[in-house]
Every structure is written in structure tokens, then in C-alpha cells.
Nucleic acid binder design. Structure first.
Length: 253
DNA sequence: AATGAACACAACCGCCATTTA
DNA sequence: CTAAATGGCGGTTGTGTTCAT
């Protein structure tokens, strides 16, 4: 009974994705669209499990993803949504279409959790009525709506942009298109993996120059992705609309 | 200049709900 | 209806980079 076994175990490669793998995946999704991930390793020859392919696409390769520093507005929104929803990162991410749940989760764990704890401790130092929390996990409890905690105790966050991202291997859709150009010149380079990685490191180095802000220019990707370049603008527009603000404010107020 | 600590983030793991044969 | 695959999600980890000493 049940479904026939699907051997996903043969696709066992793990670790960081290579540019070649990314291109393969992007090309496949371009042709077939996202979804039916169980077929992806078989049809593409990628030695990755379907889960890994889906994750790579949704968290990294999908068009419309905004990378780099979170804006103060985004930060405020995340804090407020986390207060309301708890650690429902996917739900929170649905209010920030350009951000992935993984990114938001990382941002929360790295920046906001600490910031809130610090603010909380300062409050405790200034006001004896507030009990000092002694662990980072307590921050989650403080903000858990299900516990019915008084939201007025939620510390007001200070706005501070995080520092620039590291220059470790980071892939953007812009990088994919650039790599495609390089790749076309020497598609069968036997040292493709290592050399391509080097190329990508160079690309990222260049991308991270100046203010270190990672900017994704999707215009280069039009030829390989069914992506509307206006999408990012659309997200930005939607982001700024009073409608969306009211949608969220309505929940909080 | 060297080195250890802290930071940042991509990727993996495990669990659960849904889908499918 | 059953059981296994699949997809989705949240938590955690591994590792490269940056910063401080």
C-alpha cells in the first residue's frame, strides 16, 4: 500500500552550492517553474536531495529576494510581527515579500534578540519593577503572544543598521548572470568548480565594494528567468503603501 | 602581524501536515 | 483507508569573515 518508494537517498551531496549547480537549478526552474521538487534531482542530474533544491531556490535563487542590511522600517515591522505571531518566521516573511524566512530568522537571532535583551536589561537597571531576564530564550517568551504577556512591557527597540555583510561566498541572481557569461566562454573547463568559485569570489568582492550593500540587478537575468524586473519595485511600492501598514497596524492596535 | 573572539549567514536537521498511490 | 513520500517550517550548526587585542 501507499506510494512507491522514491529513492532520494542517492542524491547525497551536501555543503555549499557551486555556481554550476545554481545555474542548473535556475535553468530548470526557468523551464518548469518552481514546484515538483522531487523530480528536480532526477531531471537536472543534481546530486542534491529535492529538499535541498527547494531550499536553495526559496532562500537564495528566487527572484525578488532583497539581500543586505535590514532597514529600520523592516526591523520595526519584524519586531512587531514577532510580538504578534511569535517565531512564525514564514508568516512574518509573508509581510516582507522581499525577505526570506531564513533571513528574518537569522536577523532576529543575531541582532534583534540581543538588542531586545540589552534594552530589557537597561530597563531593569533603571526600573526595579521590571524583572531582569537571565537568558536569551526569555526574550522569546516575553514576545510570545500566546502567553498573553503585557505588550506594554515590550522594550522599544533602538534603530541601528547592522554592519555590512561578510564577503564570504554569496550568490545573487546578478552573479548567476555574470557567471553565465564567463561560463559560456569556457563551458567545459575541467577546473570549472574551483575556478568558478574563484570567479564568484571576485564578483562578490566587486559587488561588496563601496558601501558594501549587496545590490541585485535583475536586468541581467531577464534572458534566463521568467522574472518581471518591475517586481522588486512592486514589492517596494506595496511595502510603502498605507494599505499594508494599516493591515499590520490593524492587527496590533 | 598574529591570533582568538565575535559576528554573519548559508545550509542542514528533524518534525509535522498534507498529498498521493 | 492506509502508509509512505513530499513540502514546509522552525531550530540549530558549520564555517568564512571581521574585529579587537
Amino acid at each position: 500500500m501507499g506510494r512507491p518508494p522514491f529513492n532520494d537517498q542517492i542524491c547525497i551531496k551536501k555543503g555549499p552550492w557551486t555556481p554550476e549547480e545554481d545555474i542548473t537549478l535556475v535553468s530548470y526552474v526557468q523551464e518548469h517553474g518552481p514546484g515538483n521538487w522531487r523530480c528536480v534531482p532526477t531531471n537536472t542530474g543534481l546530486m542534491r536531495c529535492s529538499k535541498s533544491c527547494r531550499l536553495r531556490w526559496t532562500n537564495y535563487l528566487r527572484p525578488g529576494i532583497k539581500r543586505g542590511n535590514f532597514t529600520p522600517q523592516e526591523e520595526q515591522k519584524i519586531i512587531r510581527l514577532q510580538t504578534l505571531l511569535g517565531n512564525k518566521w514564514a508568516a512574518i516573511a509573508s509581510h516582507l515579500p522581499q525577505r526570506t524566512d531564513n533571513d528574518i530568522k537569522n536577523f532576529w537571532n543575531i541582532h534583534l534578540k540581543k538588542k531586545l535583551l540589552r534594552t530589557n536589561m537597561e530597563s531593569a537597571g533603571n526600573n526595579c519593577r521590571i524583572e531582569l531576564t537571565d537568558s536569551l530564550s526569555s526574550i522569546d517568551n516575553i514576545h510570545s503572544p500566546l502567553l498573553g504577556k503585557d505588550s506594554t512591557t515590550t522594550p522599544k527597540p533602538t534603530i541601528a543598521a547592522s554592519n555590512g555583510p561578510s564577503s564570504m561566498y554569496v550568490l545573487s541572481t546578478e552573479n548567476i548572470s555574470q557567471l553565465l557569461k564567463t561560463w559560456k566562454r569556457s563551458p567545459h573547463d575541467t577546473k570549472s568548480s574551483s575556478s568558478s568559485n574563484a570567479d564568484f569570489n571576485d564578483i562578490n568582492k566587486n559587488t561588496h565594494d563601496g558601501n558594501k550593500e549587496r545590490h541585485i540587478d535583475y536586468s541581467h537575468l531577464e534572458s534566463i528567468l521568467p522574472f518581471d524586473p518591475n517586481l522588486e519595485e512592486d514589492f517596494s511600492t506595496r511595502w510603502n503603501t498605507a494599505e499594508l501598514e494599516m493591515e499590520i497596524d490593524g492587527v496590533f492596535c
